[in-house]
Design a protein around this nucleic acid. Structure first.
Lengths: 224, 224
DNA sequence: GTCAACAATCTTGTATGCAAGAATTTACGT
DNA sequence: ACGTAAATTCTTGCATACAAGATTGTTGAC
């Protein structure tokens, strides 16, 4: 039971943030978390520092830790970065794709198809993440794949909102299909361009949704 | 004097690692560092955690912290990631380049030219870093630029060896010239391809050097 | 002489204590 | 009644304390 607190806490907090149980902007009180997890402040602090480094938490000196709340500009920029990284992954994956990578991608893609057929957005969400992760892994570059995964996790709290956009799931799957086609044909440039567009359009649709939500919030303001 | 220890320590250790005063693979003893900096272990630990997150340090549970020593495979993969990120920066920068970005890039490029003219490798090193950073900034995407800077810092301990490759400085500057030309012409794809090649060739030449050094070390082994 | 097991030591991981800055509340003046 | 300032309270940042795993050295047996 010794020497395993900090990683456990980091994972627990990470799950809470990514799953939306801890909302962007929310303050993370050290003693509160320490009480809740039954540990002292020390491993909590260390977990928060790690989360801050991975971009999920922001630590303001002497003010405390907060779940990162990306502003509109940072969100656009983050999606653009994600689009560039994923485009690179697609290009390299198309060149290097091995049989087992093919299988993993095909499997994740099938899971997405299944979720679309069932109109099951709750299932599409993780299947989609797996599909993208399979493309990262297919680059054969673990450093690149790790970076892509880290960025994906950082954006997850925001992506979840975006699935509420009508018919987004179907559109997303259709884009996946085109991406898989280019990947399996070994067409790096096409795969890169399609994946870049896929991520960018996610960002754009998300921003549209965000703008609508903000307009709504300003029209009907209430204390939080 | 309060609330400033951890950032100070992080920067000091980061400088030591990047400048090569702390060698890759070296162990970082918490009490030793605490004594050296005149603080307790707590801020040292927090600084080490941050450095581990930024990729400069590796913390092995219950074993201690070590300056990261990238293996050949990880080095190749890291340079490939860097090449992809920089290529994206170049393409976006060529599209969005503002007058002040132009000036900053031209200035850094001139500093590189000066260093080449003087055969001053010690001056070329930071000027080169500034040149690349100027390209990142010219994307107008701060998230992307920040990521590129972080990766650049992580590879710096390894790059420094590489400048020992004969005539590398002149070759590097010639490549910069072609990159600037494409950037200032607004030719995104050309700028991206040239910068990608520029970084990849750095990685390849570095790997060649590394292989030579390792062969040397194995031929003439001695205790460390 | 070498290898293995045990003991002493060292180092990390976590808990706790304390001081200084931030936030909040209260009291006072206008 | 409202704004400002002082005081109280709360929270973080760092120091110190302690326990458990890792490392190292020693001793014993084969």
């Amino acid at each position: 039971m010794r020497g395993e607190q900090t990683p456990r806490l980091r994972e627990a907090l990470e799950d809470d943030i990514v799953a939306g149980r801890l909302r962007p902007g929310q303050r993370l009180d050290e003693v509160g978390l320490a009480d809740r997890f039954g540990v002292s402040r020390t491993p909590i602090r260390e977990a928060l520092i790690q989360l801050a480094a991975s971009g999920l938490v922001e630590i303001r000196p002497r003010r405390g830790a907060f779940v990162v709340l990306l502003g509109p500009r940072e969100l656009i920029e983050s999606f653009e970065l994600m689009a560039e990284i994923e485009a690179s992954c697609a290009r390299l994956a198309a060149q290097r794709l091995g049989p087992s990578d093919r299988a993993t991608i095909a499997e994740a893609h099938a899971a997405c198809r299944e979720a679309v057929a069932c109109h099951d957005e709750a299932a599409y969400y993780p299947a989609n993440a797996r599909f993208h992760a399979a493309v990262y892994a297919a680059t054969g570059n673990r450093v690149l794949a790790g970076e892509a995964l880290r960025l994906q996790r950082g954006l997850q709290p925001y992506r979840r909102l975006q699935l509420k956009v009508p018919r987004r799931m179907q559109a997303s799957f259709a884009e996946h299909e085109a991406i898989v086609e280019a990947l399996f044909a070994g067409d790096g440039p096409a795969a890169a361009e399609r994946l870049r567009a896929h991520v960018l359009v996610q960002g754009e649709r998300f921003m549209t949704l965000l703008a609508a939500l903000q307009a709504e919030a300003e029209a009907e303001p209430r204390a939080g």
